[in-house]
Structure formats: structure tokens, C-alpha cells
């Protein structure tokens, strides 16, 4: 698989580290409960489009949001996490 980093260009997957579901939001300020369990443990694992974090570990060290079809590995978009 290859990802087109918005800074570095098209690179092989070995430069990147997977960071999981990018639609998770840390339930800041909430007490322990379902929201925290979901944030830490629950993953949707859809068959199809999936927004996910990738870290360009061996490149520019940007955290990226990749939209990937989990059934075909076709990458629809790669964007930098808003900074």
C-alpha cells in the first residue's frame, strides 16, 4: 500500500504507522462511563470507507487523516490533522 503524504508525496506504507479510527474523540472532562470505554476500546471496523490516523513516522512526522476503503485499500484522501 502507498500513501500520498501532503508534504512528502507518494510513499510506501513502511514509512507510516497506523493510528486507528480518526473519528474517535477523547471525552475530555467526562467521568468514567460508556463514553470512555468506547473511546479506549470500541472500534467500528467497517467494511468500506474508513477515516483513520496515520503517522508519517519515517518522514515528516505529520499525523494524517486517511480515508481508505478497507475492502480494496483504495485511498480516497490524505489530509493533515488540523493543526
Amino acid at each position: 500500500m502507498r500513501l500520498t503524504c501532503p508534504h512528502c508525496g507518494n510513499r510506501g506504507i513502511e514509512e507510516f504507522a497506523y493510528g486507528g479510527d480518526a473519528d474517535r474523540r477523547r471525552p475530555d472532562g467526562e467521568p468514567f462511563g460508556q463514553a470512555w470505554m468506547d473511546y479506549v476500546y470500541l472500534r467500528r471496523n467497517p467494511a468500506g470507507a474508513h477515516r483513520e490516523w496515520w503517522y508519517h513516522a519515517s518522514g515528516c512526522r505529520a499525523w494524517l487523516v486517511v480515508t481508505r476503503d478497507t475492502t480494496t485499500h483504495v485511498v480516497a484522501s490524505v489530509q493533515e490533522v488540523a493543526r
Partner: peptide
């Protein structure tokens, strides 16, 4: 990597 996630994703 954890700290990079914290500063760039959680608390930009």
C-alpha cells in the same frame, strides 16, 4: 510517538 499524537492530534 505517543507524545507526538498528544501534541499534534489531541491538543494542537
Amino acid at each position: 510517538r505517543h507524545l507526538e499524537f498528544c501534541r499534534k492530534v489531541l491538543w494542537p
